[in-house]
């Protein structure tokens, strides 16, 4: 049970990731697919943040040796952890994954914007955002084009005659 609680965030990551992927590939609505993509990207954000979390860790701002806050922070930590890590003092959380995921979020927003813009253009060109509907319309148009070609050919042969 305790391992489950300890890994709770990772289970959330897996559920979100699989949910996002499922939405992307199961729905035919372009907007819903973008939503699925966002869920997938969010799960990655959670994954990165979870790896950077250190139990009892504090914000990564260096605290002086004689600062009274240091002793207070150290007292909050699990002594068993110190023994295993052979270290005493202050434990800092890792700030780097937060920075990375901030970048990834910005990239995700840009992708979302481009994706939604293309979805708008799809809607203008086809009058729908359903993938199946779009494919059906393309098929009809193609059949139509080859029909027109046949007409041209018959007209040409008639003219020859």
């Amino acid at each position: 049970m305790s391992s489950f609680v300890g890994y709770a965030n990772y289970f959330a990551v897996i559920i979100l990731m699989m949910g996002g992927l499922y939405v992307i590939f199961s729905t035919s609505n372009l907007i819903k697919r973008m939503i699925g993509l966002s869920i997938l990207q969010t799960s990655v954000g959670l994954f990165y943040i979870t790896t950077s979390k250190v139990f009892g860790g504090t914000v990564p701002i260096l605290i002086d040796e004689d600062d009274p806050a240091r002793a207070e922070l150290a007292s909050r930590l699990d002594p068993a952890y110190f023994e295993s890590a052979a270290y005493d003092g202050v434990v800092y959380s890792n700030p780097l994954p937060h920075v990375l995921i901030l970048t990834a979020i910005v990239v995700g927003v840009a992708t979302l914007a481009v994706g939604l813009a293309i979805a708008v253009r799809v809607r203008e060109a086809y009058g729908t955002v359903e993938r199946e509907e779009i494919e059906r319309k393309d098929r009809i148009r193609h059949a139509h084009e080859s029909y027109e070609d046949e007409l041209d050919e018959t007209e040409a042969s008639e003219a020859d005659a």
């Binding site: 993509l37 481009v114 060109a125 086809y126």
Partner: peptide
């Protein structure tokens, strides 16, 4: 006009790949 669904499809798959 089929460029639009093609671009959208590439966007979805490309982003899944990058993710």
């Amino acid at each position: 006009r089929r460029a639009l669904p093609a671009a959208f499809n590439y966007l979805i798959l490309g982003t899944v790949g990058a993710t």
